[in-house]
Design a protein around this nucleic acid. Structure first.
Lengths: 332, 332
DNA sequence: TTGTAAGCGTTATCAA
DNA sequence: TTGATAACGCTTACAA
């Protein structure tokens, strides 16, 4: 039962004041004209006693917790897991810690998590906004906690965001399909008011228009897409389709599951392409061609922007759309 | 730029003392004989002003941060992502928040994360220990931060743990292989000093002994398993093997990648079974039979045990080994 | 060059 | 039934 070492302990041991110790330990001894000799003594004592600053006390005093909150849809989803990983790294490097929560795409949970984080005095927030969350997010902004949307953004909230260029990505997929000579595309997507789907849908439809390719759009409902998808693939008229485009990893994964389970020669002949790049795509037979989101850049930029606006208090409303890249494999 | 509402704000508005407000807001007004009328007024004012307690101040004052630290190998790995998700839920339900870090199986990083968490005054720690971390973990124990190992444990540290019964799982896989009539198993595992591999290896070897099945053990090195695995599968003498057992999801995933890429009729004839149950197993052709770890129970128990020992200060050294279950699919 | 003291928002102990 | 006040560990403006 070792008690934590405090500034006071160090001060007492050396018979100096806590203020002095504090200044030295934060490297401010030079500008406060503290003798180098003193500085050395203090540093040594701190090391000897194994001093670790109490982050809570620092936070309380300075009003900066050095914690950033991360709210994703579901940390168990590898897509968000990867993002979380990069964010964590970047944040640690800058002296911040990450506290996370999953929203499950549920507004109510999202709000709860936001509240919890606010009361933890997070310095800033990185959020994957859920449907209907604009009010909550607006409120955070007003309480002066820098917040950045990642992965998607809400058109009705004026939050800065860092996202993939979904429009371009989806448009490029269309172009690629044209280049490969496909004529009839089954476009499987979701009917969602969230920016990522809106833009993927727009982008693809535009490129279909521009290239003149036939396509059928299947916009599944957000909360029942799973069953609808299975049905859709079961009923697919393979004589009228030569390629399937899944607009999201979850769609593709469930889709492949169904396709593989059906073992139908007809289905197997179809070309497949998808947004996102889950690990399965490298294992499936055939391996799946896809548009990979620039997760590394995206997450890094998001953290950098966030920390910038935390530390400089000037919320320059910079939003970014970053391009991903097509990864060509066997399926298409 | 709204400032946060404090107890003081409420107190001033009502012309009462902060102490009074504090007591009411924490539901202690009854045992402190505060008038119900007063209590109501205070609660109302708190709600009106939108009061949110400052967790930092509470933490500083009470010495309890209500934060638990979670250290996994890599949050981007869906296996740990899933665990994190369950832990998060369970913790939130009990009023705790989760701060996480990834060790990358690197002792140095592990130690850094631990330090960061200690200085955040975490109330407790859930860790996936890395090789060589017994000293750090011992040190945490001594500084009186309840800590529980999950997923695996170190034989040379006396930390409580909550893990899958790896021995039993691996043993049962052997039994299942016997039942299905396989005669020559390629057992692909890692040569690791960590409990999970030790026990999976022991369990399987024992069951091979008990059943009298032939097997060849390929214990890959911890830091170069990837390349060794590819080589191993490439060179596999399929005439001498009728089934492969992968002792871990990462091994299986890379293994399947290689097998699928080789497209060899010989390899395709082999039965496959694996420890763990990543999503790919449901998509692969054939779908993969495996032993699924009881993640839900495991993570829940871990959180419960941890919070118990945080709140009751009595560190009853309860460790748990929980059984998973065999999921039978097409591959075996 | 160093010490003193106020204060961050709470909680808890007394006193009134 | 309620109010004053010290304390948690730290930072910082000001005094010495």
């Amino acid at each position: 039962m070792k008690k934590n070492v405090t500034l006071n302990d160090i001060a007492q041991k050396l018979n100096v004041s806590v203020g002095l110790v504090s200044l030295v330990l934060r490297g401010k001894w030079k500008e406060n004209r503290i003798s180098e000799e003193m500085a050395k003594k203090v540093n040594k004592a701190a090391k000897d006693l194994g001093y670790k600053p109490n982050a809570m006390a620092q936070a309380l005093r300075t009003g900066k917790s050095k914690i950033i909150g991360l709210i994703v849809a579901d940390i168990a989803n590898p897509f968000y897991g990867k993002i979380a990983r990069i964010i964590e790294n970047e944040a640690y490097n800058k002296g911040y810690q990450v506290i996370f929560g999953s929203s499950d795409e549920d507004l109510c949970k999202f709000e709860k998590v936001v509240e919890a984080m606010k009361s933890r005095q997070v310095d800033g927030l990185l959020v994957v906004p859920v449907i209907g969350s604009h009010e909550v997010l607006q409120a955070i902004q007003e309480s002066n906690i820098p917040t950045i949307s990642i992965d998607r953004y809400l058109t009705d909230a004026k939050l800065p965001y860092v996202v993939t260029d979904n429009y371009k990505g989806s448009y490029d997929i269309g172009l690629y399909l044209q280049q490969k000579g496909y004529q009839n595309i089954a476009f499987i997507t979701k009917e969602s008011p969230l920016s990522n789907f809106i833009e993927r849908n727009k982008g693809f439809e535009q490129s279909m228009k521009d290239t003149g390719i036939n396509y059928q759009k299947h916009a599944l409902s957000v909360d029942n897409w799973n069953e609808e998808l299975v049905q859709l693939i079961r009923d697919m008229d393979t004589s009228k389709v030569d390629a399937i485009y899944f607009a999201q990893n979850m769609l593709a994964v469930e889709g492949l599951k169904t396709v593989n389970a059906l073992h139908s020669d007809e289905l197997d002949k179809l070309a497949i392409i998808s947004f996102d790049n889950p690990e399965i795509f490298e294992i499936n037979r055939p391996t799946i061609t896809c548009y990979q989101q620039p997760l590394q850049v995206l997450a890094e930029k998001a953290v950098q922007e966030l920390i910038n606006s935390i530390e400089s208090k000037q919320s320059k409303d910079i939003s970014l759309k970053i391009e991903g890249k097509l990864i060509i494999r066997q399926s298409c």
